[in-house]
Design a protein around this nucleic acid. Structure first.
Lengths: 117, 117
DNA sequence: AAGACAGATTGACAGCCTTCGATGTAACTG
DNA sequence: CAGTTACATCGAAGGCTGTCAATCTGTCTT
């Protein structure tokens, strides 16, 4: 099940959102819609949006620096970073005891492009 | 409850997503995050994404023209149009027996801007 | 090696969301 | 007026999601 979960995460993160006409140009195919919806779902939570904005605003943020500003428990933060990473929006760099997170601007740009021009 | 639902829908649709720094510029405030997440949630479903793309691709679409291409029942289509309308992404024009839907490009642009430049 | 520490995982619970059948409500048609 | 049509609403079922306490894994320090 861990394998399937990771495989799914891989697929989401590797999907090329920019490969297709944007939402406003032509009716979306079913597969493209599912893929885009998965990334949108990652962005459809207030805690994750704030987490992403914190990470995107600085170069690198470690998980321990997220707990306080977001007001959530450590397992919850871990869960959300995992979801955002699975969507390809952030990436984690494990150095020693800490995991350093940084944003993936290209991915966010791909979402924007998929949404309209 | 209908009143509250409509009040909420109004608030979502009227929220000015473009009023604040984008996600990548500065940490998002809690209220802004909740508001943006609500719009994202409307976009986080494959059926709604396809529905939006169909509506956005043509000038006007009536509800009865959505059932077939989306492969969903009439109550389901009605539910999804309601969600997208509450998020301000589409608007419905009731003429006679038909409801004609059209996209709201400005709202989609606001989402794009909130997501990054 | 022992203890402390960062963070991932598990399990459980509550709430929400998608979906559809059944029903309600207008509006047009004959 | 009776019937039909387009759409909204209700209620229920099933699945998914966010949250945290408890636990496990790996790393650093002493």
């Amino acid at each position: 099940m861990a394998a399937r979960s990771e495989a799914k995460a891989f697929r989401i993160a590797e999907g090329e959102l920019g490969c297709c006409p944007s939402v406003v140009e032509a009716p979306l195919g079913e597969n493209d819609a599912v893929e885009l919806a998965q990334v949108m779902a990652a962005l459809a939570d207030p805690v994750r949006l704030r987490l992403l904005s914190i990470v995107a605003s600085s170069d690198e943020v470690c998980s321990c620096e997220l707990e306080a500003p977001l007001g959530k428990s450590q397992p919850t933060i871990s869960h959300h970073t995992k979801v955002l990473a699975a969507a390809g929006l952030i990436s984690g760099d494990k150095r020693g005891r800490w995991t350093w997170w940084h944003a993936n601007p290209a991915r966010l740009a791909a979402v924007r492009d998929a949404l309209g021009r």
